[in-house]
Design a protein around this nucleic acid. Sequence first.
DNA 1: CGTCAGTATCTGTCTTATCAATCATTGTTC
DNA 2: GAACAATGATTGATAAGACAGATACTGACG
Lengths: 158, 158
Amino acid sequence: MTTDEDASRPASLWNDAWRGVLFAASRTLRVAEPDLIARAGFPLTWLDVLAQLYDAGDDGLRMQELEGRSLFTRSGLTRLVDRIEAAGLVRRETVPGDRRGVQVVLTAEGRRRHDAAFVDHNKLIEREFGGRLTDSQLRAVADALATFWHDDQADAKA
Amino acid sequence: MTTDEDASRPASLWNDAWRGVLFAASRTLRVAEPDLIARAGFPLTWLDVLAQLYDAGDDGLRMQELEGRSLFTRSGLTRLVDRIEAAGLVRRETVPGDRRGVQVVLTAEGRRRHDAAFVDHNKLIEREFGGRLTDSQLRAVADALATFWHDDQADAKA
DNA sequence: CGTCAGTATCTGTCTTATCAATCATTGTTC
DNA sequence: GAACAATGATTGATAAGACAGATACTGACG
């Protein structure tokens, strides 16, 4: 990944787009992560889980479902949920019909911490990411890349 | 991050764009990484380093410069270069004027492995990422997000 | 020249993600 | 209703990155 394109490395059309995606993601996260830790006291991975559970409503989610909606493997999630649970922000509950399964639910404290963190985090993303683009650019990016998260949901089921 | 937006979580303009970036990056990488390991025998982090050195030319790069151009911390790079060097793909050379410094240079073998891996990897990215978007979408994304890597280069100097 | 601040890199230790193997429970089949 | 594959989640071993502190060298100042 160099700044200029030379003969040996032609600037394909998709190349710049891909580089843009990579840099936008990692650059924004590199700012967002320490900020979140400083303010909320937990890392982005926790916020991902908390946000999923928040969106899922009172019943929470099975580990499986959490796996499908996040970018983690199942074993990674087990440890992650362990830590969040140890901090008191989520609770593992037994599933009525299936004693193998686990329902992960936000605690009241978890909901509070989520709300606070979510607001600040979003402000930061809006500033660091959204703030650099015009409205029409944002719309173009959103439209173009929507296919990736739609497919992720589909894959999670497959 | 859920699929539907509800009242408590308004679909801000930047929100979908950001989610698109995140998912596009991690989804594509999740396919690209195992593929690269299977074909080239090394992970993406190695290819990043090899590609930087390839672009840098015969003199290679100082650890510092490598750090600025990659998305690693300095200590992370030390270990990473350790591994790549152990595999014989790069070589640490002393810098003539400064015995503190290290010049990291591609070996002949490193150049060969880079070339092979680079071609395959790019094909894959083109297919998994580029293939999902139209030309005009690619152009729009590239234009919109160019600001992120331009700034990264600037920051590397600062 | 001897000391000392500054620079370039490396190491110790901790955290966390992943893969493969395992444990517990379910449901299906004969 | 006993055996057995399938499912849901966890655990053990391993790998890799991050931070803080250490090491090696440089250059400037007195």
